[in-house]
């Protein structure tokens, strides 16, 4: 093919091309890596709290069901937003301290946290871990699955798996990673990697606790897959427990 033909080829394509929007990418890299020094925390304080939603959750306009073609009464709730009817608390929100530079020892669990693919969904749905942690991803169903991540700094993977397969993967960089199965589109989980040991994920009533924080003032950050980030400055007092609340609202 001559150069002329190539350029003509390109020109021809440009004539053919219409307009289409550009799509975003779903894995975000967390704030730049930070220095973190391990010290002995003697007079540390604790922070406990709750993450909730103020307004009527029905008004958020989210489809709270997995889009499977089932009748309304037998639809299975999606895991993308789980909240408590008692206190409006939201499950599966990660809470972390964004700007902490020194504190307790980073302890990498020797027993690997597990994500199990069972009945075509991943359990648990949100798994917060410390950098350097290895996760074991299990396959508990009889059919085929694949486990697919789209991370950038941590090496991504997409592996086909069959019954009883166990895949171990180590995560070395802070990143929010979506793990999904392309054969069961509504099956996905989040692996949230932090580079300091001060983090937690909310329980079914939206509660969390973070302990042994050296006294000082910090930026606390919460993240939820649908509702996004919130930040709050919190002062931690020696040997005291401070109670805080994060409230997502429609505006």
């Amino acid at each position: 093919m001559s150069e002329f033909q190539v350029m003509r080829h390109i020109f021809f394509l440009s004539v053919l091309c219409g307009f289409l929007g550009w799509c975003g990418i779903s894995s975000k890299i967390l704030s730049a890596e930070q220095q973190y020094t391990e010290i002995e925390v003697i007079d540390g304080g604790n922070v406990i709290g709750n993450v909730k939603y103020t307004d009527d959750l029905a008004a958020v306009g989210l489809n709270l069901y997995r889009d499977w073609e089932l009748s309304d009464t037998s639809k299975i709730p999606s895991e993308k937003l789980i909240f408590s009817k008692i206190n409006n608390g939201i499950k599966n929100v990660t809470v972390s301290i964004k700007d902490i530079t020194e504190g307790k020892k980073k302890v990498i669990p020797t027993i690997h946290p597990i994500i199990d693919q069972q009945n075509n969904i991943f359990i648990p749905h949100v798994v917060p871990i410390l950098t350097g942690t290895t996760i074991d991803i299990l396959h508990g169903d009889e059919g085929m699955h694949n486990i697919h991540t789209r991370s950038m700094k941590n090496q991504p993977f997409n592996l086909g798996t069959t019954y009883k397969q166990r895949i171990s993967k180590k995560f070395d960089y802070p990143e929010i990673i979506r793990l999904s199965c392309d054969l069961h589109k509504y099956a996905y989980a989040w692996i949230v990697v932090f580079d300091n040991p001060y983090f937690d994920v909310t329980d079914r009533n939206g509660y969390f606790e973070i302990c042994d924080i050296p006294p000082g003032t910090y930026k606390f950050q919460v993240w939820h897959e649908e509702l996004g980030n919130l930040e709050k400055e919190v002062t931690v007092h020696p040997k005291e427990t401070t109670s805080i609340e994060f409230v997502y609202s429609q505006n």
């Binding site: 694949n146 697919h148 993977f157 997409n158 592996l159 086909g160 798996t161 397969q165 895949i167 392309d182």
Partner: peptide, 14 residues
């Protein structure tokens, strides 16, 4: 090896 960036998985382990 699978096709990175696509749903086509690697079947190396199986």
């Amino acid at each position: 090896t699978g096709l990175n960036g696509t749903p086509m998985p690697s079947f190396a382990k199986e």
